[in-house]
């Protein structure tokens, strides 16, 4: 029997999961929409992974979670490792591209840049103020233009003279785009202009002050858009590499961190059939009014967060009449 390591990356838009073996080879992979329900999405990816592993003699012995719902899914899966997405992406990408120097990553709601030197991340930045230039902006503009977002990139490549779109701000970009369409710019040029605007915005904000050296790897959902890839190539003057598994790098990275963590416990896919729910309320113990969230497993307390002090969890749990239960595996507690 082989040991497997499960990594789950639960983003705002999509949920990604992989099972890797001890050598880091991907044995099973899954990619689904989160649709605002991370627990359901995780159960769905588990079902897919289990199906792919059917017949193979693999036992999952460690679990890692990352992405914006990492705490919640970490509690649900009893994960050994709950890791921030920046580290997870760096580790995942480095396992595939050990010589990478710059990682561009544009996801559903955030974008980041990771600078790597000699195989170690040395600097990073995330978008702080605005979601302009992220995946959700692209898909809402695609909808406005009546073009399926999957075709966006191909259409952009057909443009000879990309329209200039003001990409500084989502709202202004949108009104500029509407204006350019109304005065007769061809659709292809507008789409290509949008791709350029996204790249300009990214390099001027997220990438500001960073030294962008090749080899460059571009990943995250938006890396599937060939129009944006071309715009990155033109803007940086370097080749920009897109991995077929680029969207899985976070999941892969956190699976590797879980593997190297050393802690092992048998994991069962049956967790799919367990009922999880979350409840929350403002604590009310002091004027901080912390918004406390409790995760329940079969109606008993599993984990919770949002509290600034220790009293918060107990107070909310007692007030909501939640039974005390066993907390999830080690690392999840206390945040």
């Amino acid at each position: 029997m082989r040991k497997g390591y499960l990594g789950v990356d639960i983003g705002s838009i999509s949920t990604k999961a992989v099972v890797v073996d001890a050598a880091g080879e991907v044995l099973a992979r899954s990619y689904l929409w989160t649709e605002g329900n991370p627990v359901r999405a995780v159960k769905a990816v588990l079902a897919e992974l289990e199906e792919q592993l059917d017949g193979e003699d693999v036992e999952v012995v460690a679990v890692g979670t990352t992405g914006s719902a990492r705490e919640l899914t970490g509690a649900v899966l009893g994960a050994q490792v709950v890791k921030n997405e920046i580290t997870a992406h760096a580790v995942g990408t480095l396992s595939r591209h050990p010589d990478v120097q710059t990682i561009f990553e544009i996801g559903g709601q955030d974008s980041k840049i990771i600078i790597v030197r000699d195989g170690v991340p040395v600097d990073y930045a995330m978008n702080t103020l605005c979601a302009a230039g992220t995946g959700s902006f692209l898909s809402s503009q695609a909808r406005r233009l009546g073009v399926p977002v999957e075709e966006f990139g191909e259409r952009a490549l057909r443009s000879k003279r990309p329209t200039k779109i003001a990409g500084r701000c989502t709202v202004f970009a949108e009104s500029d785009l509407v204006h350019k369409a109304q005065i007769g710019h061809p659709l292809e040029d507008i789409i290509a202009g949008l791709c350029n605007a996204i790249v300009g915005n990214y390099l001027n904000n997220v990438g500001k002050g960073k030294e962008v050296l090749a080899p460059i790897v571009f990943q995250g959902g938006v890396s599937k858009n060939v129009g944006v890839v071309r715009a990155f190539r033109e803007a940086t003057g370097h080749d920009v590499y897109v991995d077929d598994d680029g969207h899985l790098m976070g999941a892969l990275g956190v699976a590797i961190v879980a593997r190297d963590d050393g802690e092992e416990a048998p994991f069962s896919f049956d967790v799919r059939d367990v009922a999880f729910e979350t409840v929350g309320e403002e604590c009310g113990g002091c004027p901080n009014e912390c918004e406390v969230v409790l995760v329940l497993r079969e109606r008993a307390f599993l984990d919770g967060w949002g509290n600034r002090c220790e009293r918060g969890l107990t107070r909310v749990r007692e007030h909501l009449g939640v039974a005390e239960g066993a907390r999830a595996g080690g690392s999840v507690a206390g945040r």
Binding site: S68, K83, N84, E85, I86, T87, A90, D118, G119, V120, P121, V122, D123, Y124, M126, T128
Partner: peptide, 21 residues
């Protein structure tokens, strides 16, 4: 608060990796 924690986590991981290197 979440964004801040994510950034701090990543920053400390990064320092740790460089130091170990």
């Amino acid at each position: 608060e979440t964004g801040l924690r994510t950034r701090l986590d990543a920053f400390c991981d990064m320092l740790r990796m460089s130091k170990d290197r």
